[in-house]
Design a protein around this nucleic acid. Structure first.
Length: 968
DNA sequence: ACCGCCGGGTGCC
DNA sequence: ACCGCCGGGTGCC
């Protein structure tokens, strides 16, 4: 049993349902299969080595691409080659053409490559200095079922795949450890043990502080004093932007730069990665550090030149200053100068709201904007005003532009900065990155974040930038956003969301036309699926420096890292093929060298500290204590009877499935049974009014009704259903006859590609377009009709009330989070809270961003009449939510994923919390909830990272889980 | 390419 | 000589 648990990945932070989570890893490979079928790049996972052959690269003398002994080479089909449509070009890692594969071999290779029968990889060991041709070792990788076709195809042309170990001569270097280790075992690798993998992965982001350089004081325009670890982070970030060392795996050898993993060498310094991943735990101040970076490290290491207002600052007054014009342009949705967050900003957060809401503040500006933004005269004028007073008057900036020593003011600032920077670099000195004219012309930093943290950024800019400093922060959001490239690139900071970015992308996006000084991806791990439009939009941004902020950089899988490295342009791993070859496949196959390389890679570009990281024996941040109590709840006699009735019904159904071996096919039914039990534990009002049917559906209409009901239940279960195809939250949900939920477009595509053979990616049942059932739109809205029924209490409600009332007597100032996965439970709780005179607010996933911001502000307020309770839906908000006003948390029902609960608790147990945090989990005695908690505990000890487990294992485990839950 | 291959020149030694 | 041999031209796909 315990072995089975190891197969599951529980590292994800999105709220997941018991079964969805398990499916997740499975889903990934299935959706890969789907994508591969759609002839997109197949993934490295699951490939086996078919064998090697020796080939020849010819035509060397015609091309200037050079290779080193042991170097990996790329093989690129050239179907358009006028001399041979089978042509296969050979390139080095830089993509420079080296030569071609000899025609006879190119013929079968072309066939194999064009039909995606195998991935062919080449390494050159000898003859790299030959004038005309050189040998190359080719290895063929692919899915087992294609092995035969590949072997035959080669044999037809007289080539025989060799399974033996191909030793590297010459350098003695062993460059494809994964490949050759596999070869020697006939395609079966001995992976690292689960324990080794777990340790390796856990350590991937640990101990990254070791040799980071010193600390650095922020520029004086940063009003908030930085904590020690934030100064260290700032120093590290500045260093990475200014004099970043060679990228991972590069060494200087004589006059050349040499990559130790790929064996590629080049005369020129490899393009350095200006930026990296700041992966500090949440609450350590990534936002503040980033703001400090923006203000502290402009060109040539000088602070960002900013205009200062000598007198007390007022956003409204500033409108009379010379810069008004450019400011006016954006101010309807821009932050007003100085990053003051005005109500206008808050309003602009919700451009999708009725216009009246947006216009409520700053009416004149909006009017101004709408009829001026297209005026030519206006644009010219804007340019003039911008350049004159704002930029050229600034001596720092002038100095930065000319590259000469700054006049007085600047050097003074420099001194302050220097003073606090102890002789910093211990690492080998690498010359500062010379900034090209193009680089120097970049001014603005683009910050992309999820909508949920947008307001946080605005608040933090307001909070941390000195009041007399005029920082141009523009919020690029809302229908009225200013799309002028001139305007945007003249800002200091432009903030936008991933959604806006990808909406703009491909639609003459101004954001993509600008060369940014810096692009910052906040919560960078949200960009995960490389096929998504969002990823493409992000990768296409032009910038000198790139940063990823993330509290959880690896969520489940090595795969997730590719996107990050590609964004940072860590060569050559930004090219998927090299990433797969050098890192992903070796790691997924449990190869130690691969893992080491991955570790090195991550270490080089990442700074990560956790709340428990110590510096000089001190914790980075000392948070107040947190204690977690479990409060057992006894059901009343009536509740117990109802529960037992449902349980025995459910057990009967499930044991029938177990006996028939059809549990997986009846996944949704099982889910529904378990959810009913969970609902019984909370409150009878959660149970759906329609009685559970049994037996086969008599009519198609009946079946349809039943499926819709299932879909409704799945969606309402509080689990954030992820579409198994696109891996995003389900949009336009449809349910299959086998009762699995997908995005309509996603599953439609699957069916379209696979035609008659289409099968459900989750359970492999046959599926047809005609059988997909959509969720009727009108029902998407939460039915509020339940309130009319007379209200009834439940044991759990009573338990909560007891706590709340006691607490109010003891200390009425204490604020509480009341958390449930069932939003309907939150609704039910409203009645008794109101009855007992509690003031409360509610935050759930259905609320608009504006409403959320307002609710959080209300709750965080320390005013006497401010609410003391927040009813919080577990899935609402996500990371980054700051609810430090609360110091008590009541978890009304256990989550399947313990990490979700942790994350929720961390919303108040984070930086800024001054009180001890007390968490109470309500668990109904002798119920499915208790079993869930047991399972949670086992999971926590055995976090598995989606390596090496087979879907067969997972399926068995899933069945075991359900059996355990039902005590079968 | 210090090869192989092609095709023209040549033809006992 | 419908050959052999020589030596120049040539050379990725």
């Amino acid at each position: 049993m315990s072995q089975a648990w190891q197969r599951f990945g529980w590292g994800r932070f999105t709220e997941v349902d018991l079964f969805t989570d398990r499916y997740e890893t499975n889903i990934v490979s299935l959706s890969q299969a789907i994508r591969a079928a759609a002839s997109e790049e197949p993934d490295a996972d699951g490939s086996v080595l078919f064998g090697h052959i020796k080939g020849n690269v010819v035509g060397l003398r015609y091309y200037k691409g050079v290779v080193n002994p042991g170097e990996m080479v790329g093989l690129v089909r050239e179907p358009q080659n006028p001399y041979d449509r089978n042509a296969v070009m050979v390139t080095n890692i830089n993509g420079n053409r080296v030569g071609h594969i000899k025609r006879e071999l190119a013929a079968p290779m072309a066939h194999i490559m064009d039909n995606n029968l195998a991935k062919v990889e080449g390494v050159v060991y000898l003859g790299t200095t030959n004038q005309f041709n050189m040998p190359v070792t080719l290895s063929f990788w692919g899915r087992e079922e294609n092995k035969d076709a590949v072997t035959k195809s080669l044999a037809r042309h007289g080539f025989k795949l060799n399974m033996g170990l191909v030793l590297a001569k010459g350098t003695g270097k062993y460059n494809q450890p994964g490949a050759f280790a596999t070869a020697s075992k006939k395609g079966v690798t001995i992976p690292l043990t689960a324990e080794e993998l777990k340790n390796a992965f856990d350590n991937l982001f640990e101990g990254l502080m070791e040799s980071k350089d010193g600390e650095r004081e922020a520029a004086e325009s940063v009003g908030t004093p930085l904590l020690l670890h934030q100064k260290q982070a700032l120093s590290w970030m500045c260093a990475r932007e200014n004099k970043s060392a060679l990228p991972p795996f590069w060494e200087k050898r004589g006059d050349l730069y040499y990559n130790t993993v790929t064996c590629f060498s080049a005369k020129e310094v490899p393009e350095r990665v200006r930026g990296g991943i700041l992966a500090d735990d949440m609450g350590l101040g990534k936002t503040l550090t980033t703001i400090a970076l923006i203000l502290t490290n402009f060109h040539n290491g000088k602070p960002l030149p900013v205009e200062k207002c000598e007198k007390g600052y007022s956003p409204m007054k500033a409108a009379t200053k010379p810069l008004t014009d450019s400011k006016l342009e954006g101010s309807s949705s821009a932050l007003d100068e100085g990053a003051r967050v005005s109500d206008a900003t808050a309003a602009s957060l919700c451009s999708d709201l009725p216009q009246a809401e947006v216009i409520c503040v700053d009416k004149p500006d909006i009017v101004d904007l709408t009829d001026s933004s297209k005026g030519k005269a206006k644009a010219t004028k804007r340019k003039a005003t911008k350049v004159a007073p704002k930029l050229l008057d600034d001596l720092d900036f002038a100095a930065a532009l000319s590259g000469s020593a700054a006049p007085d003011t600047a050097s003074k600032k420099k001194k302050t900065a220097k003073k606090a920077t102890p002789a910093s670099t211990t690492a080998v000195e690498v010359p500062p990155i010379p900034e090209s004219a193009e680089d120097l012309s970049a001014r603005a930093t683009l910050i992309i974040c999820p909508l949920s943290v947008l307001s946080n950024w605005l608040e933090q800019f307001e909070q941390h930038v000195r009041a007399n400093v005029k920082l141009n922060v523009y919020l690029y959001y809302g229908a009225e956003r200013n799309r002028s490239q001139k305007f945007l690139s003249s800002q200091d900071v432009v903030i936008t969301t991933y959604n806006v970015l990808s909406t703009d992308f491909g639609n003459k996006s101004p954001l993509h036309g600008i060369r940014w000084l810096r692009v910052v991806l906040d919560e960078g791990h949200v960009v995960r699926n490389p096929n998504a439009q969002m990823s493409k939009a992000v990768l296409d941004l032009k910038s000198s420096r790139r940063w990823i902020l993330s509290g959880t950089p690896i969520q489940n899988h090595v795969k997730d890292l590719w996107m990050l490295l590609a964004f940072l342009r860590v060569k050559p791993f930004d090219v998927k093929e090299w990433w797969n070859r050098v890192i992903q496949r070796p790691v997924t196959q449990g190869d130690k060298t691969g893992l080491q390389n991955l570790q090195t890679l991550v270490k080089c570009i990442t700074l990560r500290r956790t709340k428990s990281t110590e510096v000089n024996g001190r914790l980075l941040v000392s948070l107040p204590d947190k204690s977690i109590f479990v409060e057992q709840v006894e059901l009343s006699q009536q509740e117990r009877e109802e529960y037992e009735l449902a349980r025995s019904e459910g057990r009967n159904t499930i044991s029938r499935y177990v006996a028939e071996g059809t549990m997986l096919g009846n996944y949704a039914d099982v889910l529904v049974i378990l959810m009913r039990l969970r609902q019984h534990c909370c409150h009878p009002g959660l149970l759906s009014k329609t009685s559970p049917e049994s037996g086969a559906a008599a009519t198609p209409t009946e079946l349809r009704e039943r499926l819709i009901e299932k879909l409704r239940l799945v969606l309402a279960s509080g689990s954030d259903e992820e579409c198994a195809v696109c891996l995003e939250s389900v949009r336009l949900p449809v349910i299959t006859h086998c009762a699995h939920v997908y995005c309509q477009p996603c599953i439609a595509q699957v069916i379209c590609v696979e035609k008659e053979t289409a099968r459900c990616p989750l359970c492999r049942s046959e599926i047809k377009t005609s059988e997909l059932v959509e969720f009727p739109q009108e029902e998407m809205e939460e039915d509020n009709g339940t309130n009319s029924e007379r209200w009834r209490t439940s044991s759990k409600v009573q338990a909560l009330l007891g706590n709340l009332l006691r607490l109010r007597c003891e200390d009425s100032s204490i604020k509480c989070l009341v958390v449930s996965q069932f939003t309907r439970f939150l609704t039910i709780l409203e009645t008794p809270l109101r009855e007992h005179g509690f003031t409360f607010v509610r935050l759930d996933g259905t609320m608009s961003q504006k409403k959320r911001t307002q609710v959080i502000r209300e709750f965080q307020s320390s005013a006497a009449e401010s609410p003391t309770i927040m009813l919080l839906s577990l899935k609402a908000g996500g990371v980054g939510l700051n609810l430090t006003a609360a110091s008590r948390v009541f978890l009304m029902d256990p989550a399947w994923n313990p990490a979700t609960e942790e994350q929720c608790i961390d919303r108040c147990h984070r930086l800024g919390q001054t009180k001890k945090v007390v968490v109470t989990k309500f668990i109904v005695k002798d119920s499915v909830e208790e079993n869930m908690v047991k399972i949670q505990r086992q999971k926590q000890d055995l976090v598995e990272k989606a390596f090496g487990s087979t879907s067969a294992n997972r399926k068995t485990s899933r069945i075991d889980d359900i059996k355990a839950l039902m005590e079968l």
